[in-house]
């Protein structure tokens, strides 16, 4: 009996290790590359023979990467903020209110989520050029926001449905205006959902390559994933592999920090004790 259980545990352990290795191997490869000296770049070793910070130095030396980093952070933060604020309000309405056209609204947002972005790139390119927002922050924030809103509305409305109706009634009777009830009672309880949604939306904006490469032409609004594609080596015949690897590591770190920072908030069951138990 015991040995059977032990064997099952060992089996699962082996599978877990394999999956983790499979997932983390490319990550380690990129990290290793970023620390390799240009002379040992193509030696095929898993562990760098000659450790160096030179690649990191290199990418921060030119404005090409730093400017892209500023663009990435600015665009992702603004798009996430707007999407989460709008999404919170829309999700609240979807979860709590009855209004004509509710099903239509949900259907429309689903439709947007199902559209393959590649099919919208050329129309967007033309529209943005006519409107004069091509190659600007706004020109990227708008499509990011549009494509992440359905996701935001969906996850948030699920969270709102979990919050007991009675809490809102209690707030109203206690003298709160609908806005106060939302801000002081409902929003704090939906906070874990808001954080979760925020992270998902941020990752979407941060990682996007398609819009970033299609709707920008200069460093004015080019984000890191697009900027990496324009990296050049120090000479015409040198591949910029080291710089690309270093840049990839730099833009992965914020995401990892984000998730580690907020995962406890995501998991925390904030509504515990609201009602009987």
């Amino acid at each position: 009996m015991m040995s059977h259980r032990n064997r099952t545990l060992t089996g699962w352990g082996v599978v877990n290790v394999l999956v983790v290795l499979y997932a983390l191997f490319p990550v380690w490869w990129i990290v290793a590359l970023s620390f390799k000296d240009p002379s040992t770049l193509s030696d095929g070793n898993f562990v760098p023979r000659k450790w160096t910070w030179e690649n990191y130095h290199g990418i921060f030396q030119t404005s090409e990467f730093t400017r892209a980093l500023i663009n990435s952070i600015g665009i992702a933060v603004i798009a996430t903020t707007i999407a989460v604020v709008l999404g919170t309000m829309a999700a609240y309405a979807v979860a709590r209110l009855r209004f004509p056209g509710k099903r239509l609204l949900i259907g429309m947002s689903l439709l947007i989520a199902m559209f393959p972005p590649i099919s919208l790139v050329s129309p967007l390119f033309n529209i943005e050029r006519v409107l004069g927002i091509f190659d600007t922050w706004v020109g990227l924030i708008i499509p990011y926001m549009t494509f992440s809103l359905p996701l935001a509305i969906y996850t948030l409305s699920a969270f709102f449905r979990e919050i007991p109706w009675d809490l809102e009634k209690a707030a109203k009777v206690d003298g709160a205006t609908p806005w106060q009830a939302f801000r002081l009672v409902i929003a704090p309880l939906a906070a874990p959902g808001v954080f979760t949604t925020g992270i998902l939306v941020f990752i979407f904006c941060w990682n996007d390559f398609l819009f970033a490469i299609s709707l920008t032409s200069t460093t004015a609004a080019r984000t890191v994933p697009a900027a990496i594609a324009f990296f050049t080596g120090s000479s015409q015949f040198q591949q910029p592999t080291g710089s690309i690897a270093a840049a990839a590591v730099v833009i992965t770190v914020p995401i990892v920090i984000f998730v580690l920072l907020f995962q406890r908030r995501i998991v925390a069951g904030l509504t515990a004790g609201a009602v009987k138990g």
């Binding site: 009675d166 809490l167 009634k169 209690a170 009777v173 206690d174 904030l270 509504t271 609201a274 009602v275």
Partner: peptide, 14 residues
């Protein structure tokens, strides 16, 4: 200006 006590108590959990 009325106060209400709910069956679920509806205490603000936060």
């Amino acid at each position: 200006d009325i106060a209400m006590v709910f069956q679920s108590y509806a205490l603000y959990p936060h």
